[in-house]
Design a protein around this nucleic acid. Structure first.
Lengths: 237, 237
DNA sequence: TTGAGAGATTGGTACTGTCCAATACGACAC
DNA sequence: GTGTCGTATTGGACAGTACCAATCTCTCAA
């Protein structure tokens, strides 16, 4: 269907060839890959850049390019809850708790770049993994941008719904992660003892133009969830 | 001193010009930047790639390149505790708790790719920010790679010491973040009530060749610390 | 006033070619 | 053996060019 760019197709091909190679296995040289796949070396480098960014390979000048060992995690990607759970080999589910229109308020208004008195659509869901509670999720969307959402089916993937029905593509998200003590209501819903700790994630989803589209607060059970990601040294300043 | 690559120098120049521009301000076109700075468009794109990756700008085909609004956070970078605190405008400090050689054990051996019976140097420190406890940090280093570390001054930046004295450059790190309930000893040291929650970060530091160099467990006070980062949609598979 | 369409503008993709810098390796001297 | 020094190899950096695809803008007709 979608015509892929050469560097993207090459990236996928290289990734496929790598999957069952042991760590530190050298890839062919950039020049070899180029002639072998009939593309320019620039294109090869573009594909390798992406793989390196994703943590799939590492490069050493003068030595070569090698498949990276997976120590604990793949690089962090923006995923919906459903995708996230499936990646962890659990079956995602949802139970709708609340859905309706409310005032944005200071906090959410700030996140979504709206007036505190503006209306937002709020959806509260208990998310399940393999049938058991995993987290409490509260999504806030500007009412103006999602007319008629109240009538939609809110049991499935919200990201998919936003994309297909409203053309809202969330490309980037900014997240703040904290540890919190769970309150009474939260503990009950999550089926953990009162006073247990939880992982609190505040996320603002942004579209291609970095405009805020969605603000979500998620409260994960500490005993069932962790966040894994890789970080890199970045040049000073 | 260090001769910088053109794309890196350009990146810094563009970043400097952007700092006090309001969000969504358009940058000059790539072709303009190229002629203006006397470099090829390739080089400009390389510089912009880095800025985009860091969350400083966003690009829209057909429209232009714009400075990105800082919603909550800059992109996550690999930083030492000292750098991290200074970025948060707090004064970092440390109190040495324990330092010595121990057996690696299953867990640490696994992280550092060592035999469980191999020796590692372990450093336990209470880290302070503006004089008050911020986190408990336990660093594990393969003894074989850091001879004579016991005699070194462990009050300052460990990363700096590793780099300058042993040539160990930590370029990448993989992290796992969890929420935990603090135990008695931990609460006392961190000066918070027993049973309070904490943010638990397990990190494995890797060198340029993705070889594990350091394994660190950090336990942050939940009331003083959060983790902020940006995530992007990545192409499927 | 509004909508549709043509054309210019801007970032995205791709190729060719050239030189540099770090690394690896083998020859050689000791 | 052991270290040293050239040389080939490999990734990194740039320049220049050409064309494509998304977007914006301006014109013109209804």
């Amino acid at each position: 269907m979608a015509k892929l760019a050469k560097h993207e197709e090459l990236r996928q091909r290289l990734l496929a060839e790598m999957t069952d190679a042991p760590p530190h296995t050298p890839l062919p040289t950039e020049r070899e890959i180029a002639t072998e796949h009939g593309v320019s070396r620039n294109t090869v480098r573009q594909a390798l850049d992406a793989l390196e960014q994703a943590g799939g390979v590492y490069r050493v000048q003068g030595a070569g390019t090698f498949v990276a060992p997976a120590v604990v995690s793949k690089s962090l990607a923006l995923t919906s809850f459903s995708e996230d759970m499936r990646a962890r080999e659990m079956e995602p589910g949802a139970r709708l708790l609340t859905a309706g229109t409310v005032r944005a308020g200071r906090r959410i208004g700030d996140f979504l770049d709206l007036d505190p008195k503006a209306e937002v659509f709020r959806i509260g869901r208990l998310r399940l993994a393999d049938g058991a509670p995993m987290c409490l999720e509260t999504v806030h969307l500007p009412t103006a941008r999602v007319p008629g959402l109240a009538e939609a089916d809110l049991d499935g993937s919200l990201y998919q719904l936003l994309s297909e029905r409203y053309g809202l593509e969330i490309v980037t998200a900014e997240q703040v992660v904290r540890a919190v003590d769970l309150g009474e209501t939260e503990s009950t819903l999550l089926e953990v003892p009162v006073g247990a700790s939880g992982l609190h994630v505040q996320r603002v989803g942004l579209d291609r133009r970095e405009r805020p589209v969605e603000a979500t607060t998620t409260l994960y059970r500490a005993d069932r969830y962790d966040i894994r990601f890789a970080v890199r040294r970045t040049p000073a300043s």
